[in-house]
């Protein structure tokens, strides 16, 4: 399995994800870029902060890559997730999936971001004008391995 799975503390290089999956036998590269949004449920957000259990996160991202390959036949997956403080508009996560054809590339890319949000040990904290709050997911326990 080819792939790039990394937690990064500096601004994400989108091209790095694309380069990691590109190849002459692939006719499609689907990408997803998650960016820091300036509001949440009507409340203005000034900055975002991400915290990760980096060693486990990279391992779980690799597991998602394996799962995605098994489901969609797409071995070329890159996932880069930022940690630390982000200003509004900056990429928090970049996913790239290359495949022979667009259909499986797009489906696999959508699968990767959904699974990332469910199981990769990363947490988001929103900073407001008057404080900050951790955002937490639904908390369904992933299957133990």
């Amino acid at each position: 399995m080819a792939g790039l799975y990394r937690i990064v503390e500096r601004p994400i290089d989108v091209e790095e994800a694309i380069r990691a999956v590109a190849g002459p036998d692939r006719g499609a590269i689907a990408t997803f870029i998650g960016t820091a949004r300036d509001h949440h449920e009507g409340r203005p957000v000034r900055a975002l902060e991400y915290h990760a259990y980096a060693e486990m996160a990279e391992q779980v991202m690799r597991d998602i890559g394996r799962e995605t390959e098994a489901l969609f036949g797409t071995p070329h997956v890159a996932i880069l997730h930022r940690t630390g403080r982000l200003t509004i508009g900056e990429p928090s996560v970049v996913i790239a999936v290359a495949a022979e054809h667009r259909r499986e590339a797009l489906a696999a890319c959508a699968h990767v971001i959904e699974r990332l949000k469910e199981i990769v040990p990363i947490w988001k904290k929103e900073h407001y004008a008057d404080g900050a709050a951790w955002i937490e997911g639904s908390g369904s326990t992933p299957a133990s391995t």
Binding site: V93, K117, E118, I119, V120, P121, W123, W134, E136, G137
Partner: peptide
């Protein structure tokens, strides 16, 4: 061993 709240990356 680690314990943590429900994740919220992305």
């Amino acid at each position: 061993i680690a314990v943590f709240p429900p994740v919220s990356g992305g």
